[in-house]
C-alpha cells in the first residue's frame, strides 16, 4: 500500500490566528434518502446519528454532517475510512444509496484563534457572525466551493476539494495575515 499524504502535509501559517491544513482526514460521502429506515439503522450500528438539516453532529471521534437533502458527509480517521465505507456500503446494499470514500479528494483546514471568524468572513459571502454552533455552512471561499463549521471554541474547520487546496491555503494565509484583522 502506498503512503497516504494529505494535500499540503499539514502546512501551517501564523497570523492574527493560526491557519493550518489538518493533515490526513477520512471523509465518506453518503447519498441516500435521509429519512430511510435503512440509513438510520446502518448509521446507528456505527453509533452515529442522522443529522438534521444543515447540522453537524460529533460522536465517538467522528463527525457526520448534513450536506444536502440527500447527502451526508462522514468525517473520521483517515485509516478507518476504507473499512467503514465497506461496512456502510454492505449495510445499505439493499437500499437506493451510495457510500464512497472521498478522503483523498478533499482537504481540510483548521483556523484557530479568537478572531478565526474574521478569516472566513473576508473570503465568503456567508453570514459567519450568525453561524450557530453545530451548523455546517456550504458556501464558497473566494472562487471555490467550501464547507465550514465551528469545530470548537474559537476554531473553525473548513473543507475544500483537494485539487484547490493550494489556492485555499493561499487565501487563508493572506486573510489571516498579522494586522489585517477587521475588528
Amino acid at each position: 500500500m502506498s503512503e497516504a499524504v494529505s494535500a499540503l502535509s499539514g502546512q501551517t501559517h501564523e497570523g492574527f490566528v493560526t491557519v493550518s491544513e489538518a493533515g490526513l482526514v477520512g471523509m465518506i460521502s453518503i447519498r441516500s434518502d435521509l429519512e430511510a429506515k435503512g440509513l438510520a439503522k446502518a448509521l446507528k450500528a456505527e453509533r452515529l446519528p442522522v443529522p438534521g438539516p444543515r447540522r453537524i453532529e460529533t460522536a465517538n471521534g467522528r463527525s457526520i454532517a448534513w450536506m444536502s437533502p440527500d447527502e451526508l458527509l462522514l468525517i473520521c480517521a483517515h485509516d478507518e475510512a476504507p473499512a467503514l465505507t465497506d461496512r456502510l456500503a454492505k449495510a445499505l446494499a439493499g437500499d437506493h444509496a451510495l457510500v464512497v470514500n472521498v478522503s483523498d479528494a478533499r482537504a481540510m483546514f483548521t483556523i484557530r484563534g479568537d478572531k478565526a471568524d474574521q478569516v472566513v468572513m473576508k473570503l465568503s459571502p456567508a453570514d459567519i457572525a450568525t453561524l450557530p454552533e453545530g451548523e455546517i455552512r456550504r458556501s464558497r471561499t473566494a472562487q471555490v466551493a467550501a464547507a465550514f463549521w465551528r469545530s470548537g471554541e474559537s476554531e473553525i474547520s473548513l473543507i475544500s476539494f483537494r485539487s484547490v487546496a493550494g489556492y485555499v491555503m493561499g487565501l487563508l494565509e493572506v486573510s489571516a495575515r498579522e494586522g489585517s484583522d477587521l475588528f
Partner: peptide
C-alpha cells in the same frame, strides 16, 4: 427551499 440557507446571489 431545499436547505433553508439564506444566501446572496453569487452562491
Amino acid at each position: 427551499p431545499c436547505c433553508g440557507v439564506i444566501a446572496e446571489e453569487t452562491e
